[in-house]
Simulated assay, not measured.
Amino acid sequence: MLRARRLNSSMIDRIAHDNAIDTLSVWFKGRGKYLYHAVPRALYDALKTAESAGKLFNDHIRGRYYCEPDPARRRHRPD
């Protein structure tokens, strides 16, 4: 089981990295959890210590890696 790490960021609540499949999990504040595939561990480590995790994310991850909403996330829709 992955352990999520909380960040002091206005954009990102938590992050976790699965080394076995190089997947970065990102919990965005107010938007939920997304999975970014083939993200190297070094970027996860950089996010943990970045002065601005949001800027690092936007500059080096967003739009560069395949992303999908967490498929395990439940979606509640009205009938």
Rank of each mutant, 00 (worst) to 15 (best):
E51S: 09
R75P: 03
L47N: 00
R3E: 15
R62T: 05
R5G: 07
V39F: 05
A46I: 00
A38F: 13
D70Q: 07
Y44M: 03
L7G: 07
Y34F: 15
Y66C: 06
R5L: 12
L47F: 00
K29C: 10
G54S: 07
R62N: 06
D79P: 08
D59T: 07
R64A: 08
C67D: 02
H60G: 02
K29N: 12
L56E: 02
A46Q: 04
I15H: 02
F28G: 04
D13Q: 12
N8E: 11
L24M: 13
Y36F: 12
A38N: 12
F57C: 04
G30H: 10
N19G: 11
T49D: 01
A72H: 11
K33L: 15
T49Y: 00
V26K: 06
A38R: 14
I21C: 15
P69I: 03
M11D: 08
S52D: 08
S10H: 13
G63H: 04
R3D: 15
D13S: 11
Y36T: 03
L35Q: 09
G32W: 10
L47I: 00
E68I: 07
S25L: 12
P40C: 04
I12P: 05
R3P: 14
L2K: 14
G32D: 06
N8P: 01
S52H: 08
A72Q: 11
D79H: 09
R5N: 11
L47G: 00
A38T: 11
D70W: 04
E51C: 03
A20S: 15
R73L: 11
K48W: 00
S52W: 03
P71Q: 07
L47V: 00
S9W: 12
R3K: 15
A53R: 01
N19Q: 09
V39S: 04
P71M: 06
D70N: 12
P71V: 08
R41S: 03
T49H: 01
S9A: 10
A4H: 14
A50K: 00
D13M: 08
Y36C: 05
N19A: 13
E68M: 04
K55P: 03
R5T: 14
L47E: 00
R31L: 15
H76I: 08
T49R: 01
K29T: 12
R5P: 01
D59N: 07
L7C: 07
K33N: 14
A42Q: 00
R62I: 03
F57W: 05
A72I: 07
R6D: 11
R77A: 07
Y36Q: 05
P40L: 02
Y65P: 02
R64D: 06
H60W: 04
S25I: 10
D18V: 13
P69L: 03
R41F: 05
Y44E: 01
G54T: 01
P71H: 06
N58C: 10
R64Q: 08
A38Y: 09
R75A: 11
N19R: 09
L43Q: 01
G32N: 10
L7E: 04
I15K: 02
R6F: 10
N8F: 07
